[in-house]
Amino acid sequence: MDVFMKGLSKAKEGVVAAAEKTKQGVAEAAGKTKEGVLYVGSKTKEGVVHGVATVAEKTKEQVTNVGGAVVTGVTAVAQKTVEGAGSIAAATGFVKKDQLGKNEEGAPQEGILEDMPVDPDNEAYEMPSEEGYQDYEPEA
């Protein structure tokens, strides 16, 4: 019985440690998101679009440190934060509304985080759909 109880105690310690790591990862992701939003706020009209992409990228980098179902929630929060940063930029006159959601080359930025393969159960990952990809044929 002692062996059984000791095993359960060790398992509990492992769960607590994993929860603490997840909590730490979420806190880091939130900190990076805040950094990115402050970065966007300090940019001029020309830099705002690039700044919004930076927020998304920093958040995406930190999301990889967070495991399990938390990833889905962090990704949703990050996307809403990026959308909010863009709205703030438009409201303050840093950028025109028609410039939001495009990178410096004018290509749409939507789907940055949505296409990231995420499995809350950590069982399997699927690649994003290939609808947006084109076949590449090298020139002879």
Rank of each mutant, 00 (worst) to 15 (best):
M1S: 01
M1G: 00
M1L: 00
D2C: 03
D2E: 01
F4R: 00
F4P: 00
M5Q: 00
M5V: 15
M5F: 09
K6L: 15
K6E: 08
K6P: 00
G7E: 06
S9V: 05
S9G: 11
S9L: 07
K10T: 11
A11R: 00
A11F: 14
K12C: 15
E13D: 01
G14T: 14
G14R: 01
G14S: 15
G14D: 06
V16C: 15
A17V: 08
A17Q: 03
A17N: 07
A18G: 02
A18K: 00
A19Y: 15
A19L: 15
E20L: 15
E20D: 10
E20M: 08
K21S: 07
K21I: 12
T22S: 09
K23M: 11
K23A: 08
Q24I: 07
Q24S: 10
G25R: 08
G25W: 12
G25L: 10
G25N: 02
G25D: 05
G25M: 11
V26A: 04
A27P: 00
A27T: 07
E28R: 03
E28G: 11
A29V: 15
A29L: 08
A30H: 01
G31M: 14
G31W: 12
T33C: 02
T33E: 00
T33A: 08
K34Y: 12
K34V: 10
E35F: 08
E35I: 06
G36M: 07
G36P: 01
V37Y: 05
L38H: 09
L38M: 13
L38A: 11
L38K: 08
Y39T: 11
Y39L: 06
G41H: 09
G41S: 02
S42Q: 06
K43F: 12
K43P: 00
K43Y: 14
T44P: 04
T44A: 12
T44K: 02
K45F: 05
K45R: 13
G47T: 10
G47Y: 06
V48A: 09
V48M: 09
V48D: 00
V49H: 09
V49L: 15
V49K: 11
H50F: 06
H50I: 11
G51V: 13
G51H: 10
V52A: 11
V52W: 01
V52Q: 01
V52L: 14
A53V: 15
A53N: 07
T54Q: 06
T54E: 05
T54G: 05
V55S: 02
V55I: 01
V55F: 13
V55E: 01
E57C: 05
K58F: 10
T59N: 02
T59W: 11
K60R: 04
K60D: 01
E61K: 14
E61Y: 08
Q62L: 04
Q62C: 08
Q62S: 06
Q62G: 04
V63Y: 08
V63A: 09
V63T: 09
T64P: 03
N65V: 06
N65K: 05
N65Q: 02
N65P: 03
N65F: 13
V66C: 15
V66H: 03
V66F: 12
V66K: 04
G67E: 06
G67L: 14
G67F: 12
G67C: 03
G68A: 02
G68Y: 11
A69W: 07
V70I: 15
V70C: 03
V70L: 12
V71M: 04
V71R: 13
V71F: 12
T72I: 14
T72G: 05
G73S: 12
V74P: 02
V74W: 06
T75C: 12
T75I: 02
T75M: 14
A76R: 10
V77L: 11
V77E: 07
V77P: 04
A78K: 04
A78R: 08
Q79H: 03
K80R: 09
K80L: 13
K80D: 03
K80M: 14
T81G: 07
T81Q: 07
V82T: 14
V82E: 05
G84C: 09
G84T: 01
A85P: 07
A85I: 07
G86T: 06
S87R: 03
S87C: 06
S87Q: 07
I88M: 10
I88F: 05
A89M: 07
A89F: 14
A90I: 15
A90E: 02
A90T: 15
A90N: 15
T92P: 07
T92F: 15
G93Y: 13
G93Q: 02
F94V: 07
V95D: 07
V95Q: 01
K96V: 13
K96C: 15
K96Q: 06
K97F: 09
K97M: 09
D98L: 09
D98K: 08
D98V: 06
D98F: 14
L100V: 08
G101R: 12
G101F: 03
G101V: 09
K102D: 15
K102L: 02
N103S: 08
N103P: 04
N103G: 10
E104Q: 13
E104H: 09
E104W: 12
E104P: 10
E105R: 09
G106V: 07
G106T: 15
A107F: 01
E110I: 10
E110D: 03
E110Y: 07
E110M: 06
I112T: 07
L113I: 15
L113H: 07
L113V: 15
L113C: 03
L113D: 13
E114N: 13
E114F: 04
E114W: 14
M116F: 01
M116H: 11
M116I: 10
M116C: 10
P117Y: 03
P117L: 10
P117G: 07
P117D: 04
V118T: 03
V118M: 03
D119A: 03
D119F: 01
D119H: 06
D119G: 14
D119Q: 10
P120G: 10
P120F: 07
D121K: 07
D121P: 07
N122Y: 11
N122V: 05
E123I: 14
A124L: 11
Y125T: 10
E126F: 03
E126W: 08
E126L: 07
P128M: 11
P128G: 10
P128L: 12
S129K: 06
S129C: 11
S129Y: 08
E130P: 13
E130T: 09
E130L: 11
E130I: 02
E131C: 08
E131Y: 05
E131D: 14
G132Q: 15
Q134V: 03
Q134F: 11
D135G: 05
D135V: 09
Y136K: 14
Y136F: 11
Y136Q: 05
P138M: 11
E139Y: 08
E139R: 14
A140I: 06
A140P: 15
